[in-house]
Protein backbone atom coordinates (compact mmCIF):
# COMPACT_ATOMS: atom_id res chain seq x y z
CA UNK A 1 0.00 0.00 0.00
CA UNK A 2 2.72 2.42 1.00
CA UNK A 3 4.71 1.43 -2.08
CA UNK A 4 1.68 2.19 -4.20
CA UNK A 5 1.23 5.63 -2.66
CA UNK A 6 4.91 6.53 -3.01
CA UNK A 7 4.99 5.38 -6.61
CA UNK A 8 1.83 7.28 -7.49
CA UNK A 9 3.20 10.39 -5.77
CA UNK A 10 6.35 10.12 -7.87
CA UNK A 11 4.27 9.80 -11.04
CA UNK A 12 2.22 12.79 -9.92
CA UNK A 13 5.30 14.96 -9.60
CA UNK A 14 6.45 13.95 -13.10
CA UNK A 15 2.99 14.66 -14.47
CA UNK A 16 2.93 18.09 -12.84
CA UNK A 17 6.28 18.87 -14.45
CA UNK A 18 4.86 17.82 -17.81
CA UNK A 19 1.72 19.90 -17.36
CA UNK A 20 3.68 22.98 -16.31
CA UNK A 21 6.00 22.59 -19.30
CA UNK A 22 3.14 22.37 -21.80
CA UNK A 23 1.35 25.28 -20.16
CA UNK A 24 4.51 27.34 -20.13
CA UNK A 25 5.36 26.53 -23.75
CA UNK A 26 1.87 27.53 -24.90
CA UNK A 27 3.01 31.15 -24.81
CA UNK A 28 5.93 30.42 -27.13
CA UNK A 29 3.98 28.35 -29.64
CA UNK A 30 1.35 31.06 -29.86
CA UNK A 31 1.83 33.66 -32.55
CA UNK A 32 2.48 37.19 -31.34
CA UNK A 33 5.17 38.75 -29.20
CA UNK A 34 4.26 39.04 -25.50
CA UNK A 35 6.33 42.21 -25.21
CA UNK A 36 4.32 43.76 -28.03
CA UNK A 37 1.06 42.83 -26.30
CA UNK A 38 2.16 44.62 -23.12
CA UNK A 39 3.76 47.62 -24.78
CA UNK A 40 0.84 48.31 -27.11
CA UNK A 41 0.94 49.29 -30.77
CA UNK A 42 2.77 52.59 -30.37
CA UNK A 43 5.88 51.22 -28.62
CA UNK A 44 9.28 51.74 -30.21
CA UNK A 45 11.85 49.01 -30.79
CA UNK A 46 13.89 50.09 -27.79
CA UNK A 47 10.79 50.01 -25.56
CA UNK A 48 10.16 46.43 -26.64
CA UNK A 49 13.77 45.56 -25.95
CA UNK A 50 13.50 47.03 -22.46
CA UNK A 51 10.30 45.12 -21.71
CA UNK A 52 11.83 41.90 -22.97
CA UNK A 53 14.85 42.37 -20.74
CA UNK A 54 12.74 43.24 -17.68
CA UNK A 55 10.55 40.15 -18.19
CA UNK A 56 13.47 37.87 -18.91
CA UNK A 57 12.14 37.20 -22.42
CA UNK A 58 15.63 37.60 -23.86
CA UNK A 59 16.92 34.55 -22.01
CA UNK A 60 16.89 31.04 -23.52
CA UNK A 61 13.48 29.34 -23.32
CA UNK A 62 14.63 26.61 -20.96
CA UNK A 63 16.04 29.15 -18.50
CA UNK A 64 12.77 31.06 -18.69
CA UNK A 65 10.88 27.84 -17.96
CA UNK A 66 13.04 27.11 -14.91
CA UNK A 67 12.55 30.71 -13.72
CA UNK A 68 8.79 30.30 -14.16
CA UNK A 69 8.84 26.98 -12.31
CA UNK A 70 10.85 28.46 -9.46
CA UNK A 71 8.31 31.28 -9.27
CA UNK A 72 5.35 28.88 -9.29
CA UNK A 73 6.85 26.87 -6.44
CA UNK A 74 6.95 30.10 -4.45
CA UNK A 75 3.38 30.96 -5.40
CA UNK A 76 4.44 33.53 -8.00
CA UNK A 77 2.65 32.94 -11.31
CA UNK A 78 3.69 36.23 -12.91
CA UNK A 79 1.62 39.32 -13.61
CA UNK A 80 -1.36 39.90 -15.87
CA UNK A 81 -0.51 41.63 -19.16
CA UNK A 82 -3.71 43.58 -19.00
CA UNK A 83 -4.12 44.77 -15.44
CA UNK A 84 -0.65 44.19 -14.02
CA UNK A 85 -2.31 42.35 -11.12
CA UNK A 86 -0.44 39.36 -9.72
CA UNK A 87 -1.87 36.17 -11.21
CA UNK A 88 -2.01 34.38 -7.87
CA UNK A 89 -3.99 37.26 -6.33
CA UNK A 90 -6.39 37.23 -9.27
CA UNK A 91 -6.91 33.49 -8.91
CA UNK A 92 -7.16 33.46 -5.10
CA UNK A 93 -9.84 36.14 -5.09
CA UNK A 94 -11.96 34.13 -7.54
CA UNK A 95 -11.25 30.60 -6.38
CA UNK A 96 -13.88 30.40 -3.57
CA UNK A 97 -16.70 30.92 -6.07
CA UNK A 98 -15.44 28.18 -8.37
CA UNK A 99 -14.91 25.87 -5.41
CA UNK A 100 -18.43 26.46 -4.11
CA UNK A 101 -19.88 25.81 -7.54
CA UNK A 102 -17.88 22.61 -8.10
CA UNK A 103 -18.68 21.13 -4.68
CA UNK A 104 -22.38 22.01 -4.83
CA UNK A 105 -22.66 20.49 -8.32
CA UNK A 106 -20.89 17.33 -7.27
CA UNK A 107 -23.27 16.95 -4.31
CA UNK A 108 -26.27 17.42 -6.62
CA UNK A 109 -24.80 14.96 -9.13
CA UNK A 110 -24.04 12.26 -6.57
CA UNK A 111 -27.34 12.55 -4.73
CA UNK A 112 -29.47 12.36 -7.87
CA UNK A 113 -27.21 10.01 -9.80
CA UNK A 114 -26.68 7.31 -7.19
CA UNK A 115 -30.31 7.33 -6.09
CA UNK A 116 -31.68 7.15 -9.64
CA UNK A 117 -29.20 4.43 -10.58
CA UNK A 118 -30.11 2.23 -7.64
CA UNK A 119 -33.86 2.62 -8.13
CA UNK A 120 -33.39 1.75 -11.82
CA UNK A 121 -31.44 -1.36 -10.93
CA UNK A 122 -33.96 -2.56 -8.34
CA UNK A 123 -36.89 -1.96 -10.67
CA UNK A 124 -34.95 -3.42 -13.60
CA UNK A 125 -36.88 -3.29 -16.93
CA UNK A 126 -39.84 -1.46 -15.40
CA UNK A 127 -41.17 1.86 -16.69
CA UNK A 128 -39.25 3.59 -13.88
CA UNK A 129 -36.04 2.02 -15.17
CA UNK A 130 -36.83 2.91 -18.77
CA UNK A 131 -37.72 6.53 -18.07
CA UNK A 132 -34.75 7.06 -15.76
CA UNK A 133 -32.27 5.63 -18.28
CA UNK A 134 -33.79 7.75 -21.04
CA UNK A 135 -33.64 10.87 -18.89
CA UNK A 136 -30.03 10.01 -18.05
CA UNK A 137 -29.23 9.77 -21.77
CA UNK A 138 -30.87 13.15 -22.34
CA UNK A 139 -28.90 14.45 -19.37
CA UNK A 140 -25.55 13.65 -20.97
CA UNK A 141 -26.75 15.08 -24.27
CA UNK A 142 -28.08 18.41 -23.05
CA UNK A 143 -25.68 21.33 -23.55
CA UNK A 144 -25.19 22.66 -20.03
CA UNK A 145 -24.98 26.29 -21.12
CA UNK A 146 -28.37 25.88 -22.74
CA UNK A 147 -29.83 24.11 -19.70
CA UNK A 148 -28.58 27.04 -17.62
CA UNK A 149 -30.23 29.54 -19.94
CA UNK A 150 -33.51 27.58 -19.82
CA UNK A 151 -33.44 27.37 -16.01
CA UNK A 152 -32.87 31.12 -15.87
CA UNK A 153 -35.79 31.60 -18.25
CA UNK A 154 -38.17 29.52 -16.13
CA UNK A 155 -37.08 30.20 -12.54
CA UNK A 156 -35.60 33.68 -12.74
CA UNK A 157 -37.40 35.40 -15.62
CA UNK A 158 -40.88 33.81 -15.52
CA UNK A 159 -41.39 32.56 -11.96
CA UNK A 160 -38.92 35.00 -10.41
CA UNK A 161 -38.19 32.78 -7.42
CA UNK A 162 -34.41 32.44 -7.92
CA UNK A 163 -31.80 35.04 -8.91
CA UNK A 164 -30.63 35.37 -12.54
CA UNK A 165 -26.98 34.99 -11.70
CA UNK A 166 -24.02 36.09 -9.63
CA UNK A 167 -22.49 34.47 -6.59
CA UNK A 168 -21.80 37.08 -3.99
CA UNK A 169 -23.57 36.16 -0.74
CA UNK A 170 -22.19 33.90 1.97
CA UNK A 171 -23.04 30.24 1.55
CA UNK A 172 -24.52 30.27 5.07
CA UNK A 173 -27.29 32.68 4.14
CA UNK A 174 -30.57 32.01 2.35
CA UNK A 175 -29.51 34.23 -0.56
CA UNK A 176 -26.24 32.35 -0.78
CA UNK A 177 -28.02 29.02 -1.14
CA UNK A 178 -30.67 30.39 -3.48
CA UNK A 179 -28.14 31.77 -5.94
CA UNK A 180 -26.24 28.48 -5.96
CA UNK A 181 -29.27 26.30 -6.83
CA UNK A 182 -29.51 26.92 -10.58
CA UNK A 183 -25.77 26.86 -11.32
CA UNK A 184 -25.35 23.63 -9.33
CA UNK A 185 -28.19 21.93 -11.21
CA UNK A 186 -26.83 23.21 -14.51
CA UNK A 187 -23.35 21.90 -13.90
CA UNK A 188 -24.40 18.77 -12.02
CA UNK A 189 -26.89 17.36 -14.54
CA UNK A 190 -24.42 15.76 -16.94
CA UNK A 191 -22.47 14.21 -14.06
CA UNK A 192 -25.68 13.01 -12.41
CA UNK A 193 -26.65 11.28 -15.63
CA UNK A 194 -23.26 9.59 -15.93
CA UNK A 195 -23.27 8.51 -12.29
CA UNK A 196 -26.81 7.17 -12.65
CA UNK A 197 -25.81 5.03 -15.63
CA UNK A 198 -22.78 3.69 -13.85
CA UNK A 199 -24.62 3.04 -10.56
CA UNK A 200 -27.37 1.21 -12.39
CA UNK A 201 -25.08 -1.16 -14.28
CA UNK A 202 -22.85 -1.74 -11.29
CA UNK A 203 -25.80 -2.37 -8.99
CA UNK A 204 -27.38 -4.78 -11.49
CA UNK A 205 -24.20 -6.76 -11.62
CA UNK A 206 -23.93 -6.97 -7.84
CA UNK A 207 -27.59 -7.85 -7.30
CA UNK A 208 -27.20 -10.84 -9.60
CA UNK A 209 -24.09 -12.12 -7.85
CA UNK A 210 -23.89 -15.24 -5.69
CA UNK A 211 -23.47 -13.65 -2.30
CA UNK A 212 -26.58 -11.56 -2.73
CA UNK A 213 -28.49 -14.70 -3.65
CA UNK A 214 -27.14 -16.28 -0.46
CA UNK A 215 -28.28 -13.30 1.56
CA UNK A 216 -31.71 -13.58 -0.01
CA UNK A 217 -31.83 -17.30 0.74
CA UNK A 218 -30.90 -16.58 4.34
CA UNK A 219 -33.98 -14.42 4.52
CA UNK A 220 -32.30 -11.04 4.83
CA UNK A 221 -34.82 -8.27 4.15
CA UNK A 222 -34.72 -6.93 0.59
CA UNK A 223 -34.22 -3.36 1.74
CA UNK A 224 -31.23 -4.29 3.84
CA UNK A 225 -29.75 -6.38 1.01
CA UNK A 226 -29.87 -3.43 -1.35
CA UNK A 227 -28.81 -0.62 0.93
CA UNK A 228 -26.31 -2.49 3.08
CA UNK A 229 -24.87 -5.51 1.29
CA UNK A 230 -25.06 -4.55 -2.36
CA UNK A 231 -24.51 -0.81 -2.15
CA UNK A 232 -21.00 -0.97 -0.74
CA UNK A 233 -19.68 -3.16 -3.49
CA UNK A 234 -21.67 -1.48 -6.20
CA UNK A 235 -20.18 1.90 -5.33
CA UNK A 236 -16.59 0.90 -6.14
CA UNK A 237 -16.74 1.45 -9.92
CA UNK A 238 -18.96 4.48 -9.31
CA UNK A 239 -16.17 6.13 -7.34
CA UNK A 240 -13.82 5.77 -10.33
CA UNK A 241 -16.33 7.31 -12.67
CA UNK A 242 -16.83 10.19 -10.23
CA UNK A 243 -13.07 10.78 -10.29
CA UNK A 244 -12.86 10.79 -14.06
CA UNK A 245 -15.97 12.90 -14.35
CA UNK A 246 -14.67 15.42 -11.82
CA UNK A 247 -12.42 16.65 -14.63
CA UNK A 248 -15.34 17.26 -16.95
CA UNK A 249 -17.05 19.03 -14.08
CA UNK A 250 -14.04 21.31 -13.54
CA UNK A 251 -14.02 22.11 -17.26
CA UNK A 252 -17.77 22.71 -17.05
CA UNK A 253 -17.37 25.34 -14.32
CA UNK A 254 -15.89 27.61 -16.99
CA UNK A 255 -19.09 27.43 -19.03
CA UNK A 256 -21.46 27.60 -16.07
CA UNK A 257 -19.69 30.64 -14.64
CA UNK A 258 -20.17 32.37 -17.97
CA UNK A 259 -23.90 31.58 -18.11
CA UNK A 260 -24.61 32.75 -14.56
CA UNK A 261 -22.13 35.65 -14.56
CA UNK A 262 -20.23 34.12 -11.64
CA UNK A 263 -16.93 35.79 -10.94
CA UNK A 264 -14.81 32.64 -10.78
CA UNK A 265 -11.57 31.18 -12.10
CA UNK A 266 -13.26 29.97 -15.29
CA UNK A 267 -14.47 33.41 -16.26
CA UNK A 268 -11.05 34.80 -15.51
CA UNK A 269 -9.64 32.25 -17.94
CA UNK A 270 -12.13 32.94 -20.74
CA UNK A 271 -11.51 36.68 -20.51
CA UNK A 272 -7.77 36.01 -20.58
CA UNK A 273 -8.05 33.77 -23.66
CA UNK A 274 -9.98 36.49 -25.48
CA UNK A 275 -7.32 39.07 -24.54
CA UNK A 276 -4.37 36.67 -25.05
CA UNK A 277 -3.28 37.43 -21.50
CA UNK A 278 -0.91 34.47 -21.19
CA UNK A 279 0.21 34.68 -17.54
CA UNK A 280 -3.44 34.41 -16.49
CA UNK A 281 -4.15 31.60 -18.96
CA UNK A 282 -1.10 29.70 -17.74
CA UNK A 283 -1.94 30.17 -14.07
CA UNK A 284 -5.59 29.15 -14.37
CA UNK A 285 -4.95 26.12 -16.60
CA UNK A 286 -2.09 24.98 -14.39
CA UNK A 287 -4.24 25.28 -11.28
CA UNK A 288 -7.23 23.40 -12.69
CA UNK A 289 -5.08 20.61 -14.16
CA UNK A 290 -3.15 20.26 -10.90
CA UNK A 291 -6.37 20.01 -8.88
CA UNK A 292 -7.65 17.40 -11.30
CA UNK A 293 -4.60 15.11 -11.12
CA UNK A 294 -4.35 15.43 -7.33
CA UNK A 295 -8.04 14.56 -6.90
CA UNK A 296 -7.55 11.55 -9.13
CA UNK A 297 -4.58 10.42 -7.09
CA UNK A 298 -6.67 10.65 -3.94
CA UNK A 299 -9.45 8.65 -5.58
CA UNK A 300 -6.98 6.00 -6.71
CA UNK A 301 -5.77 5.63 -3.14
CA UNK A 302 -9.30 5.48 -1.73
CA UNK A 303 -10.08 2.92 -4.38
CA UNK A 304 -7.19 0.72 -3.33
CA UNK A 305 -8.16 1.12 0.32
CA UNK A 306 -11.78 0.07 -0.05
CA UNK A 307 -11.10 -2.74 -2.49
CA UNK A 308 -8.18 -4.88 -1.41
CA UNK A 309 -8.56 -7.01 -4.56
CA UNK A 310 -7.00 -4.20 -6.56
CA UNK A 311 -3.30 -4.22 -7.09
CA UNK A 312 -1.42 -1.86 -9.34
CA UNK A 313 1.27 -4.20 -10.60
Amino acid sequence: MLVLIVRRLFQLVLLLFGISFIVFMSMFIAPGDPAAIIAGPTASASDLEAIRASMGLDKPVLVQYLDYLAGVLHGDFGYSYQTGQSVSDAIISRFPNTFKLAVASMIVAMAIGIFAGIISAIKHNSWIDFSSTTIALLGVSIPNFWLGAMLILVFAVNLQILPVGGLSYSIFSLEGIKELVLPAITLGTASAALIARMSRSSMLEVIQSDYIRTAKAKGVKKRSIVWVHALRNAMIPVITIIGIDFGALLGGTVITEQVFAINGVGRLMIDAIAARDFPIIQGTVLLVAAIFVVVNLIIDIIYALIDPRISYD
Binding site: S26, A30, A248, G251, A272, I273, R276, A289, F292
Partner: peptide
Protein backbone atom coordinates in the same frame (compact mmCIF):
# COMPACT_ATOMS: atom_id res chain seq x y z
CA UNK B 1 -4.29 15.56 -17.24
CA UNK B 2 -6.11 18.56 -18.71
CA UNK B 3 -9.66 17.96 -17.54
CA UNK B 4 -12.56 17.94 -19.97
CA UNK B 5 -12.85 20.80 -22.36
CA UNK B 6 -9.83 22.56 -20.80
CA UNK B 7 -7.34 21.02 -23.25
CA UNK B 8 -9.41 22.31 -26.17
CA UNK B 9 -9.51 25.75 -24.53
CA UNK B 10 -5.74 25.82 -24.03
CA UNK B 11 -5.20 24.95 -27.70
CA UNK B 12 -7.58 27.69 -28.76
CA UNK B 13 -5.75 30.09 -26.45
CA UNK B 14 -2.59 29.25 -28.39
Amino acid sequence: AFPGILLAMLIIAI
